[in-house]
Design a protein around this nucleic acid. Structure first.
Length: 484
RNA sequence: GCCGCGUUCGUCUAGUCCGGCCUAGGACGCCAGGUUUUCAUCCUGGAAAUCAUGGGUUCGAAUCCCAUACGCGGUACCA
């Protein structure tokens, strides 16, 4: 049996779509699960859609996610480099290879030169549509004599190379996810293999590269199902073994259309910026179209657990709606799950205020219970980082009088003053304050909490006092007393 | 238009291959209650799918067969 080799083959066109990210995940999981090779190939054959820095961003996201690959394109010191024995792994560096194979097809009559201009093609399509026919190349250039072809080539006329499709019968293939798929061949178009700029189309390059790189299993989106017969003919024309293929279901908007920019964030970059953890995004996206099977109720999975449990037979056929609410929940679970040190490291970019590591870690220890994403740090808890400002009425517990209110705060102040710096910890603070509060807790605790935070909602006064420290806490209480 | 694929609570899904254990289970979200000085966390409970619809096969169908509807994808010198 041949070695299992799979590839993730994105195009550097600007950003990484989460649907694409999931394809990468599933491909990676399959590779790791089966002990196969995972390869990163770059499909940069569309010159018009090239975007600067896109390659660098793409690779940085794969690295961010932790999808380690054994071969392909890497970034080193800001430069793209290639590693592996089947390179180059960047399609724009393989132009000679595609040309060679296209010529081989030309020689065997499985491909032909086409000199039709884009304008003629467009007109042809319009006519076909007007007559309610399926738009399809009319094989106009197939009839050209070899003399004429030679003449037009020599005169430097622009051309493309088209695949000569066999339209007899039908093509059947066994999709790893969908099972048997059958498509009639007379629906297939003589597609372009090599464009007039000398670059191959995806339709050609993907077949050549998958074969040459000895890819055993192809993972791609559902949108390629109907093109698969054309690829199969190509493999057959060359006499190559056909790899196994799995067409993954799409990710959808709430209205069930293909997940798109219009209805929210689609780029992995957007989710990173908002403070979603890689573990959460991976966890969430893995569950969109896949499940661990019967009787399994676990929802939170690490990457290595996913590798262990992943199985193509549990991948769905239907598309899945991207539900941000569930992502939020999974993210909040992960924020609670990772270590405090780890959480601190990852939170730094979301914290603008200049505070000590010790202080920030205290904030995080309290905050992690209430965060859904890292970008929320300090958002509704500015009082940990800034001076506070609030109305006197906020301090009032129910409808107690000013005297009572003042008494309450004075009591808190006295109690806290009595706690030494060394005893200033969460347990002591809670124990002593609760004891002092007695029956009527709110009467002592609400004004205290309000004086420390200046907010209606916040963590408990014990936690806030602990984070703020003795000095700052007492200062805030004094300020509150002066307001009354 | 044509072709392909799909269809279980609002959403992600279990169950479908090998019909009975499914008066359809879990999770998110939602609602209610509890814990609680507030918010959140946490805990308990609840509402929520006539298994797209209609026919068949069968003692029995979410599960098998057929048709219909709806949705999505493809139909490029994009991938």
């Amino acid at each position: 049996m041949n070695k299992i080799r799979v590839r993730f083959a994105p195009s550097p066109t600007g950003y990484m779509h989460v649907g694409n990210f999931r394809t990468a995940l599933y491909t990676y999981l399959f590779a790791k699960k089966s002990g196969g090779d995972f390869i990163l190939r770059i499909e940069d054959t569309d010159q018009k859609r090239q975007v600067e820095d896109a390659l660098e961003k793409l690779i940085s996201i794969i690295n961010w996610a932790g999808f380690e690959y054994a071969e392909g394109v890497y970034m080193e010191n800001g430069k793209a480099i290639e590693k592996g024995n089947f390179g180059p792994y960047t399609q724009s560096k393989r132009l000679e290879i595609y040309k060679k194979y296209a010529e081989q097809l030309l020689g065997s009559g499985k491909a032909y030169y086409c000199f039709c201009t884009p304008e003629r093609l467009e007109e042809m399509r319009q006519n076909q549509l007007a007559q309610k026919q399926a738009p399809m190349y009319d094989q106009c250039c197939l009839k050209l004599s070899s003399e004429e072809i030679k003449k037009r080539l020599e005169s430097g006329e622009k051309y493309v190379i088209r695949q000569k499709i066999n339209t007899q019968g039908f093509t059947e293939f066994n999709d790893l996810i969908r099972g048997k798929v059958s498509i009639k061949n007379d629906l297939l178009d003589d597609q372009i293999l090599l464009k007039s700029d000398g670059y191959p189309t995806y339709n050609f390059a993907n077949v050549i590269d998958d074969h040459l790189m000895e890819i055993s299993h192809i993972f791609r989106g559902e949108e390629y199902v109907s093109s698969t017969p054309k690829y199969i003919q190509l493999y057959e024309n060359f006499g190559w073994e056909i790899p196994a293929v799995a067409h993954l279901p799409l990710l959808l908007n709430t209205d069930k259309s293909k997940l798109s920019k219009r209805q929210g964030d689609v780029a992995v970059e957007d989710y990173i910026k908002k403070g979603y953890l890689k573990e959460a995004l991976i966890n969430f996206v893995a569950l969109l179209g896949w499940n661990p099977g019967e009787g399994e109720t676990q929802e939170i999975f690490t990457l290595s657990e996913l590798i262990q449990k992943f199985d193509l037979s549990h991948v769905h056929k239907a598309g899945a709606v991207f539900d941000i609410k569930k992502l939020d929940w999974i993210n909040s679970q992960w924020i609670k799950k990772i270590s405090l040190d780890d959480l601190y490291e990852r939170s730094l970019e979301f914290i603008k205020e200049n505070k000590s590591e010790e202080y920030i870690k205290k904030v995080l220890l309290i905050e992690r219970e209430r965060l859904t994403k890292l970008s929320e740090i300090g958002e509704s808890n500015k009082f940990f980082f800034e001076e506070i400002n609030y109305d006197k009425e906020l301090l009032r517990w129910k409808d107690i009088s000013d005297e009572k209110l003042k008494e309450s705060l004075e009591k808190s102040k006295a109690v806290l003053e009595n706690i030494s710096e060394t005893d200033w910890n969460r347990e002591n603070l809670e124990k002593i304050l609760m004891e002092s509060a007695g029956e009527n807790r709110g009467e002592l605790l609400w004004p205290l909490r309000a004086s420390l935070t200046g907010e209606k909602k916040s963590p408990s006064p014990f936690e806030c006092a602990w984070v703020l420290g003795k000095e700052e806490s007492l200062k805030r209480i004094k300020t509150a007393i002066e307001k009354i």
